[in-house]
């Protein structure tokens, strides 16, 4: 028996379709169906945490401001000795269980607490720049970078994936709907398309 489909944290307004200005290259917005697990290492336990994550997912743990990407899984640095491990949604809780944890490593399932929105398209950077205080220019923010900041008073992790540019935005689920409101306003002048969650 499989669990019923989850409600999207982006709310009922996030219906697939094309919106905003017509013509040009729209910015694409896709809710990613993922599992998210937070890994926090205690004092002197960074190497141990790295082994744990490597064994469970094959991902290396990145250093400050960096993201490690392998296929459709990734590990994001969020703070000293703290990371998020993200990969396509599997059985509820399985990733956290697989990672385990120990006395000096805390593993916490964030699959409901946070969510991920993918933003891609030539104008994606401009859409974010309107509300972000972080410099997103490729020279200082190349693919593989992450920055935690606040946009419209909402804490968001901006992960740069490629040069298109594409971004994964990691958001607190309870503010996802409010964030999408802001994002749609910001993207309207370029035109945008909401894609079905994937």
């Amino acid at each position: 028996m499989s669990a019923p489909d989850r409600l999207s944290p982006f709310g009922p307004e996030a219906k697939p379709g094309r919106h905003g200005a017509a013509g040009g290259t729209p910015v694409l917005m896709t809710e990613r169906k993922v599992d998210i697990v937070q890994v926090m290492a205690g004092r002197d336990a960074n190497a141990k945490a790295a082994n744990l994550v490597k064994d469970a997912t094959g991902l290396a743990l990145p250093g400050p401001r960096k993201v490690e990407i392998a296929g459709d899984a990734m590990a994001i640095w969020i703070q000293p000795s703290g990371w998020l491990v993200i990969r396509p949604r599997g059985e509820e809780g399985a990733l956290a269980k697989k990672l385990g944890g120990s006395d000096d490593i805390a593993v916490v399932d964030q699959g409901h607490g946070r969510c991920v929105l993918r933003l891609t398209g030539a104008h994606a950077g401009e859409v974010l720049a309107k509300g972000s205080r972080v410099d997103l220019h490729p020279r200082v923010f190349p693919p593989g970078s992450v920055a935690t900041t606040s946009i419209d008073h909402i804490t968001v992790m901006i992960v740069k994936l490629d040069a298109v540019p594409s971004f994964d935005l990691v958001l607190p689920s309870n503010f996802a709907e409010a964030f999408l409101d802001w994002l749609r306003m910001s993207a309207a002048e370029f035109g945008y398309e909401i894609r079905p969650a994937a």
Binding site: P64, R133, T149
Partner: peptide, 11 residues
Amino acid sequence: PWCGTRDEAEF
């Protein structure tokens, strides 16, 4: 020292 230069609004 961890994140780089940011505006006071984040602090």
